[in-house]
Structures are given as C-alpha cells and as structure tokens.
C-alpha cells in the first residue's frame, strides 16, 4: 500500500488516541483543553504573519500578469476588463472572482486522446474539481463561523441566522446542519480523487493527505458529538468561553471525544502556516493575478534594477565600419 497516505492516516489516528486517552486515562484536560489550543492559535497567528511578511518582503521586479482575454488597445476593440484588466478596479474584480468563486479552476478541462483513425485530442469541461473545492471551502467556512457561538455570549444574531439557514432542512433532532454533511462529503470526494485518479495519485505527497485526513477526523468527531453521543454542551461552553475571555477553566463531565476534537483542530491550526494550506494567504499576493496588464502604458519600477554591460552602437560600428561603408550603410564616424 501507499505510504504517502498510510502514514498521514496513521498519524491522524494517533493524534486522536493521544488526546482521547490523555484525557480519559491520564486526566490531562488542562493540556488538551487549554495549553495546546492557546499554543496552536499562537503558532497559527505568528506563522501566518511571518509567512505573509516573508512573501511581501520579496520584490516584484516585473509586472507579469497572466492575461486571459483581450488587452486594452484600440478604442474600438472590446477589452476583457476582468480577465485582462488594465485598471485596479478590474484587478479587484478579477481577484474577488478568483478568491470567492475560484474562477481559474472553473475553466478546468479534461483532455482525452481518442485513438482511432483521426486520433483526435478532445477537451471536455471538467467541473467536479471546481464543485468539490467550492463545496469544501464554503462548508468549512460555515462550520467555522457556526463555532463562534461557543466563543460569544450572548450569541450574535448573525450567527443565529447562519444556523437557521444551515439547518433549514429541519431534519432530525438535534436539527441537521447541512454544512457538516457537505464538508465531510466534499473532503471524502477530494480524498477519493487523490486515491483513484492516477495522475493526481502520482503527484500527491503525504502533505496532501494529512490535512484531508485531519479535517475528516475533525468533521467526524464533530458530527459524532452533535448527533450520536451525548456531550455536556453547557460544560463545553464554559470551557470555550473561558478560553475566549482568557480565564480558562476545566469543567466537569466533558468527555475525551471533545478533547480529541479540539486537539485535532489545534493541530490543524498549528500545522497551517508551515503547509500548503497557506494558499489561503498566497492567492492574495500572486503576481500573475493581482497586477494590471498595463505595463506598456504605465512604467513599472524594479527596485533592484542594475546597470549591465551592453554592446553599444559605437562598439558595433567600430567593428563593422568598413563593411558598412562598402554596403552603403550610414555610419557616424567616417575614417
């Protein structure tokens, strides 16, 4: 079997067990419920800032957007203002569409080679990765926002509205949240792609499987707590409010499953800045997307531009003067 996903899978199991047994067996609630979450959030914030500052400290010597449509040129030629923007408004719209709707991924196609008399290469629209990615990111966002009810008192009305819409199918008791189900399904889809699409399997690293398994673990424990096992919700809120107000307490009667859930979330936070998950910050800074295509109209300055040795016209003429005169080409110095 493939160690690229077996090791991450085992790691996530171990993480679960460490927290579960650590709480149930060794009584380390204070570590898994207070110390580690604080450390993880700190690592996340510090790591995120350091990483983004690191990118920002690198220069942008040239304005090199990838242009995906007609440029602005003659007034009667219709420009594609979004895919080939020449103004910051256009760039803003391009970035919004990229960040919120994954516009580039929406273009995705699948190539197939039909081996027959005509040997045709055919390209079909491939929307599933886009759908899966969109479903994953938005359900994750909703789940994350819903959890703010544990860190606020009273719970703001916008969160209540979000919960209302998320539970609009009104199924079961406690009511089913669509986001949780979609999150788990989308993550499983993304995982299945990595395992069964041979091209994606080939390019995948352990670092691609680990966050997927971790998120699956987080979603599964979350769903288990809400729908299947009894957890002391008041106790949990006491703990989370303690964390949010910097006066942490460990309540009685909260089981190991909860601490395992919190531990895996904490690991995800701590892991985030050192991983590919930083695409969340990187997309804002990507120079092929966030720059206007107006380099000929407006000069871009390279902060480290330096002088270079060139071959001047004078050197050129010195080299070829006789031949140039003979051919009747004009010269600056006749000797």
């Amino acid at each position: 079997m493939n160690q690229k996903y077996l090791i991450p899978l085992t790691t996530v199991f171990l993480l679960f067990l460490v927290a579960y047994t650590g709480v149930e067996g060794a009584g380390l609630q204070w570590f898994f419920g207070i110390v580690f979450p604080y450390l993880a959030v700190f690592a996340f914030l510090a790591g995120f800032v350091i990483k983004v500052m690191g990118w920002a400290s690198s220069a942008v010597p040239f304005r090199i957007p990838t242009t995906c449509g007609q440029q602005k040129s003659l007034p009667w030629i219709k420009q594609n203002c979004i895919d080939n923007p020449d103004t910051s408004t256009g760039v803003f719209i391009r970035m919004v569409l990229e960040i919120f709707l994954f516009r580039s991924l929406f273009r995705n196609t699948k190539a197939a080679f039909n081996r027959n008399v005509s040997n045709k290469l055919a390209y079909s629209w491939e929307i599933f990765l886009w759908l899966g990615a969109l479903a994953f990111h938005y359900s994750f966002l909703v789940v994350l926002l819903r959890h703010f009810r544990f860190f606020t008192s009273p719970v703001p009305s916008c969160l209540k509205w979000l919960e209302y819409f998320d539970g609009i199918v009104q199924l079961g008791l406690p009511g089913l949240f669509v986001s949780g189900v979609v999150l788990l399904a989308a993550t499983l889809f993304l995982l299945a792609r990595r395992i069964f699409d041979t091209k994606v399997t080939y390019i995948s690293q352990a670092a691609d499987y680990f966050p997927l398994f971790l998120i699956i673990g987080i979603a599964a424990t979350g769903i288990a707590m809400r729908y299947f096992t009894k957890v002391d919700i008041m106790g949990i809120k006491t703990l989370t409010m303690g964390l949010a107000t910097f006066s942490p307490v460990i309540p009685e009667g909260v089981g190991g499953l909860f601490y395992a859930h919190v531990f895996m979330v904490s690991v995800l936070f701590a892991y985030f800045p050192a991983s590919k998950l930083m695409h969340m910050g990187g997309i804002f800074l990507s120079p092929t997307r966030n720059m206007a295509n107006n380099t000929r109209a407006k000069r871009h300055v390279n902060p480290w531009n330096y002088d270079v040795k060139t071959h001047t016209y004078a050197e050129y003429e010195d080299h070829f003067r006789d031949k140039m005169i003979e051919a009747g080409l004009p010269v600056d110095k006749k000797e």
Partner: peptide, 18 residues
Amino acid sequence: ERFRTFKIFMDVCVRCGA
C-alpha cells in the same frame, strides 16, 4: 528574495492537478 512570484509559487501549490 528578488522574485515574489518564485517564493509564492514554491509555497502555495496544493497539487490539485488542474
């Protein structure tokens, strides 16, 4: 240090395969 493109492109790829 000289090219933000290079630095970001080294860090952010998620190997989605698109």
